[in-house]
Design a protein around this nucleic acid. Structure first.
Length: 913
RNA sequence: GCCCGAGUGGCGGAAUGGUAGACGCGAUGGACUCAAAAUCCAUUGUCCUUUAAAGAUGUGCGGGUUCGAGUCCCGCCUCGGGCACCA
């Protein structure tokens, strides 16, 4: 029989499902390995070949780790709450749950065809009440906790209450606290809870009718849908992520993530260490001190004006009567600008003089106070001291409004632009004169603190996460309102399920859809009508996989202490500042309260690259229904038309298929080159409108899942983005067919029990070494190459020996599991290849009684060779010289040193004569 | 503007500072075949001389370190990604 991949793949997928081959069971004493994919949002379009790239990689790693004796947890689930299903529901009236279930089923069948080794018994869906019970539970825990800055961790809110009662805290004395009524106390506590209700400026998207988190907005537009977003003050649920800023930052150092991803998170957290300084102000007789934040107190002698954010509360106090009209005009102008406009023209400098003055606390100088939207209310104190000579933004402002520019670093030229660098010697700066800038920064901080003019302060860009969404298809809050005050539901009341409503669009008066739910209350108290955002359900799903059916806890202590955290996490880089921050925050919170045993959720993280589409084009001669092949199109005036890539193979157009594709091409004529129609191509995003979507099901039909898996890996480095190009898929398919033929000649199994020759063993061991090294480095493309090389080597040797082929089957099984299972069975094994032990073949790789010599030229190791321990130094030298890895030009060189290092490593140093 | 990452044949891509272009695709020639498919073999960076052997040249550009650089260092150019009034 030939390599019948269709029958083989169907057979083994059924076998795995029936035997629960990949079910993970906690086994004390066996080392664990938790390999996780970022679970998908099941969209209506189904999977295209780009989606499984990361899943294939993690599956290879999982299967490899199983072979190496690890107990592997490799689960999959669905991030099933979300906007598209809701919008579809608004248009069609179809309940989002129905659409979501359909989409999930489609995803599942597509994934099954690729042959992943998921433990489907652990599947989770974020929209399942059994699952979101624990999302709601976590929220209640956050509501009942505060962040204790002394202990640097979350603690029960009762501890804070006790502190207020006994000794007072944070400016509120015990007496004051006792004098507060119930409502006042709960308002105060709200300022400390990790999950809290608070008035804040939010990203409001009128088109979607909901607020959005910062990472859901990009360039003033919503990430989903691309609708304009405006700033609006609203009372919203929020998570005090900012309390964890320092721990989120510092934890990055211990993670095995790529530098670029860590850098993105560092930028997002945006730590900056500076100083808060108080400037007194003069407006008539009144004094309104302004606190400003700066990282460069050393430049305080160069301050020539100050700027307030337009939203600052001080604007009103500090506007003089003469300037009132101008300031009001300016505030109206700023208010009219949308967030998008404000971001778009950062180059246009606008502002207005407030009419009052601040006092430089060091010099006593009068400093004019201005108002401008280049100062943000949300960062620092919403007020700055401006040093135009040494800050480019202040410089632009000073130029525009003719304010003085006073350099305070010797010899710098500020006639064209500001001098922002932290280098040079200070001047015009009183006691700082003559100091190096770097020293002056510290000296100035010390001075300001010692004189009581200000204090050191660390600021973060990271804001609290807005946690309410005015939507239907999300987790309901376990919160009701009693006399207008939020009241948490008891844990026993969970899950709070979504009530049925007739229509999914927002209710009257801009109310969320859930406001339509009639009589939705808890003990007569109306329920919160917002729902939680998308990241709520995805923040702790990796914990739920450890113990997915537990109805008494998110995860049991036993399951958590066995699986601990994720050893390998694979997913897209687009979650860098969203999910990957929230998950870390969520996990740290649960860690603080002792619910989980690791403070970081994802130990190692790999970002797979995106697979782009490779669009194909045909060229229609203008005014005709005639199409000209790409190579000849210069001779005609043509229009470029996207053609379905499924009608194109190796850039050749299937003419009949093309005619049948669309009615208007039915009688198309072609101008061919060499009898074929060659299409043009371009790399674009994979999307329906470009007709470049390739469905993995089609590839499985034509070539099989094993070919798809090998090919996706062979395409290039995992982390690199690359276009999907079906050229070359024949190569890996051919490899599998050749592999098959080493076992079968027609129907006959031709595997023999002959003893293997040395060069056959060498080819095998080369492959073992390569595979071990490459898989640990996630260099799967070169591993696939190594298989082809091994096959070429063995092919020329015409090898059909069991001694060689059996280990080859095991080695190949992570990549091409179906064919491996089939061959494994053909070799007479009853069990799945999954249970084969890899290590014994690894052992064979290590030759006994040898020592390893690291051969170095000029101190750098070039290669290692294994030689018998008994060899004398002279024999070692001869062996090194004649070794195949020793380059030719070692002729004319000599071994000058032989350094014997304890632990059987010998360093041979070679230098020219 | 700032911070990352990457530039290697016709293409995807390999190369611990040590024979650049592994492996695959494509292409060319050949075998098998009535023919096609499938399969197999050979050649395949560029240039020049040549029957051949061989030679020159070659990893975005310009320098440097080194016996030796695709790889390390300095300065540019180009492309991709992220952040972007964060004081």
């Amino acid at each position: 029989m030939d390599y019948d991949f269709r029958a083989i793949e169907a057979k083994w997928q059924a076998y795995w499902a029936e035997h629960h081959t990949f079910r993970a069971v906690e086994k004390e004493g066996q080392p664990k390995c938790y390999v996780l994919d970022m679970f998908p949002y099941p969209s209506g379009a189904g999977l295209h070949v780009g989606h499984p790239l990361g899943y294939i990689a993690s599956d290879i790693y999982s299967r490899y780790k199983r072979l190496c004796g690890f107990n592997v947890l490799h689960p999959m689930g669905y991030d099933a709450f979300g906007l598209p299903a809701e919008q579809y529901a608004i248009q069609t009236g179809q309940h989002p749950e129905v659409t979501t279930t359909q989409n999930i089923n489609r995803y599942r069948s597509q994934m099954d065809r690729i042959g992943f080794s998921y433990d489907w018994d652990r599947e989770v869906r974020t929209c399942d009440p059994k699952y979101y019970k624990w999302t709601q539970w976590a929220f209640l825990q956050m509501y009942a906790s505060w962040y204790d800055p002394d202990q640097q961790k979350a603690r029960p809110i009762e501890e804070l209450v006790r502190r207020f009662e006994t000794s007072g805290y944070d400016g509120i004395s015990a007496e004051q606290w006792r004098s507060f009524d119930e409502k006042r106390r709960s308002e105060v506590l709200m300022n400390y809870r990790i999950a809290y209700l608070g008035e804040t400026s939010v990203n409001w998207c009128p088109e979607l009718g909901t607020v959005l988190a910062n990472d859901e907005v990009s360039g003033g537009l919503s990430v989903r849908g691309g609708f304009p977003v405006e700033q609006k003050k609203m009372r919203q649920w929020q998570l005090r992520v900012s309390a964890y800023a320092e721990r989120l930052l510092e934890g990055l150092d211990r993670l095995d993530w790529t530098d670029s991803l860590k850098e993105m998170q560092r930028n997002w957290i945006g730590k900056s260490a500076g100083t808060e300084v108080v400037f007194d102000t003069v407006k008539g007789d009144a004094h309104y001190p302004i606190t400003i934040f700066t990282t460069r107190v050393d430049t305080i002698f160069g301050v020539t004006f100050m700027v307030l954010a337009p939203e600052s509360e001080l604007v009103e106090c500090l506007t003089s009567p003469e300037q009132k009209a101008a300031v009001d005009d300016y505030l109206a102008y700023v208010k009219k600008k949308t967030e998008r406009e404000r971001m778009a023209d950062t180059r246009t400098v606008t502002g207005v003089f407030a009419g009052s003055y601040g006092i430089n606390p060091l010099t006593g100088e009068r400093i004019p106070i201005w108002i401008s939207d280049y100062v943000l209310s949300g960062y620092g104190t919403g007020a700055i001291m401006a040093v135009p000579a040494h800050d480019s933004r202040d410089y632009a402002f000073a130029r525009k409004f003719n304010l003085p520019i006073r350099p305070i670093i010797e010899g710098c030229d500020v006639s064209e632009q500001s001098f922002d660098a932290k280098e040079g010697k200070m001047c015009n700066s009183g006691f700082l004169d003559g100091m190096d800038v770097k020293d002056a920064i510290e000296a100035a901080k010390d001075y300001v603190e010692s004189k009581g003019l200000g204090h050191r302060k660390v600021n973060y860009r990271l804001r609290d996460a807005i946690f309410s969404r005015q939507r239907y298809w999300g987790e309901p809050f376990p919160i009701c309102y009693k006399d207008g005050m939020p009241e948490p539901l008891p844990v026993e009341a969970l899950p709070v399920t979504l009530p049925e409503i007739g229509e999914f669009k927002p209710a009257e008066g801009g109310q969320p859809p859930l406001a339509r739910a009639k009589d939705w209350n808890y003990n007569g108290c109306p329920m919160e009508t917002s729902t939680m955002p998308g990241f709520a359900g995805s923040s702790a799903y990796y914990l739920r996989y450890m113990d997915p059916h537990n109805d008494n806890a998110l995860v049991s202590k036993a399951a958590n202490s066995y699986w601990r955290n994720v050893d390998l996490y694979i997913g897209g880089t687009e979650h860098a500042t969203g999910h990957l921050i929230y998950s870390r925050f969520w996990n740290k919170f649960l860690y603080d309260l002792g619910y989980v045993c690791e403070d970081e959720p994802f130990r190692k993280l790999i970002n797979q690259g995106m697979i782009q589409g490779r669009s194909s084009f045909v060229y229609r001669i203008v005014g005709t229904n005639k199409f000209v092949s790409a190579g000849l199109r210069d001779a005609y005036e043509t229009t470029e038309i996207h053609v379905d890539v499924n009608l194109v193979h190796n850039d050749r157009l299937d003419l009949e298929g093309f005619r049948a594709w669309r009615p208007d091409f039915h009688d198309a004529e072609f101008i061919l080159e060499d009898g074929e129609y060659i299409c043009g191509w371009a790399v674009e995003k994979m999307s329906k409108s470009m007709f470049n979507v390739v469905n993995p099901d089609d590839i499985c039909d034509t070539y099989g899942a094993d070919t798809l898996r090998l090919y996706e890996m062979f395409l290039g480095p995992l982390e690199q983005s690359k276009p999907w190009d079906t050229k070359g898929i024949d190569g890996v398919h051919r490899f599998l067919k050749k592999f098959w033929r080493m076992f079968f000649d027609g129907d006959k199994l031709i595997v023999t029990d002959e003893k293997a020759y040395a060069d056959e063993l060498k080819a095998l061991h080369k492959l073992i070494g390569k595979e071990r090294e490459d898989i640990e480095n996630f260099s799967f493309n070169t591993t696939v190459s190594a298989f082809m090389i091994a096959l070429n080597d063995l092919g020329t040797l015409n090898c059909h020996k069991r001694e060689i082929l059996e280990p080859m089957v095991i080695l190949l099984s992570p990549f091409a599991p179906h064919i491996s299972e089939e061959l494994w069975q053909a070799l007479g094994h009853a069990d799945s290849v999954t249970y084969a032990a890899f290590p014994e073949y690894v052992e064979a790789y290590t030759v006994e009684n040898n020592c390893t010599y690291a051969v170095s030229f000029n101190g750098k190791t070039r290669f290692t060779i294994s030689l018998p321990l008994s060899m004398s130094p002279a024999e070692v030298e001869a062996a090194v010289r004649s070794h195949e890895s020793t380059p030719k030009y070692v002729e004319g060189m000599q071994i000058v040193k032989v350094i014997v290092v304890p632990g059987k490593i010998v360093n041979v140093v070679i230098k020219p004569l």
